[in-house]
Design a protein around this nucleic acid. Structure first.
Lengths: 142, 142
DNA sequence: GCGTATCGTGGAGCTTGTCAACGATGGAGG
DNA sequence: CCTCCATCGTTGACAAGCTCCACGATACGC
């Protein structure tokens, strides 16, 4: 960070991230979701056989205790359920309800539309490169 | 956000940003700073004639009330001072002390080194492109 | 002058991040 | 089989961050 702040990647990253999170939260509000809970819901819908909360935590980069609260919230809204895993009775698999899948799809459309405001100036090829770089940033530190 | 979460730019952005902020905060801790206060200090050092807190807020993408607390913190540590602006007595210019400049330089070195962990896999050209894209994301929504 | 807008500041309330514990379960080694 | 240790989910506590609203002081347009 020795250079002008406008050139600092860490600063630019968190500022842009905050911007995108803000507009996405606004778009998800009408579905009763926020980015955090939406991410959990999406991951649960992706995995055919459910995901343990530990896996959710590592993929999302969150503390496991946060995942507990998010799953509580989604479960209270009837969007996901906790199922006992057969192999390991410590883990509880998070699986979406049919309603959860519906909400996920509807919310996804609104979120996609909203995110075009900040990302509109980026072309498809640029988005691919951005995705690639952000993924590598994440995997670099594990 | 209609696709797999691993392809969602908003999600990737906030996850990568969180990662970078985490390691940077750890590096800045020994200087008594965090990314937020460090950003304010850097901006104050850049502007030759000082910056109003309102300007700081808009550049940083923060609420003005947050800037108050950050400047309070930096002023208590003797790193910046609030100076009355001659033209407009409502505004208070934030200017760094000599000590503030020293700390800024020292902290900058550590922050630069720390951020290499998550950003190490990115080449110089990639970083330029990343900077450009993140800046455009910010300016798109103003 | 007078109304309106802007700057800094303070406060309330909520969300996030971090960390340390705890019971329950699983697994490895003697 | 039994003991020791790791892991999973959960809870609680606390700090940090964000958002919104309101206020006094100052500036500016009319």
């Amino acid at each position: 960070m020795g250079q002008p702040l406008a050139d600092d990647l860490g600063f630019l990253l968190s500022r842009a991230s905050g911007q995108v999170v803000r507009v996405t939260n606004a778009a998800l509000a009408e579905h009763g979701l926020r980015v955090r809970s939406y991410s959990v819901l999406v991951l649960a819908c992706e995995a055919a056989d459910g995901l343990s909360q530990r896996e959710l935590a590592t993929v999302l980069g969150l503390d496991p205790s946060q995942v507990v609260l998010l799953v509580d919230e989604l479960a209270a809204a009837g969007l996901v359920e906790r199922q006992a895993a057969e192999a390991d009775r410590r883990t509880r698999l998070v699986v979406p309800t049919p309603e959860g899948r519906r909400v996920r799809d509807a919310a996804g459309l609104d979120a996609d539309a909203a995110v075009e405001a900040p990302l509109g100036l980026l072309g498809d090829a640029e988005r691919d490169r951005l995705r690639d770089m952000l993924t590598r940033i994440w995997t670099a530190t594990g």
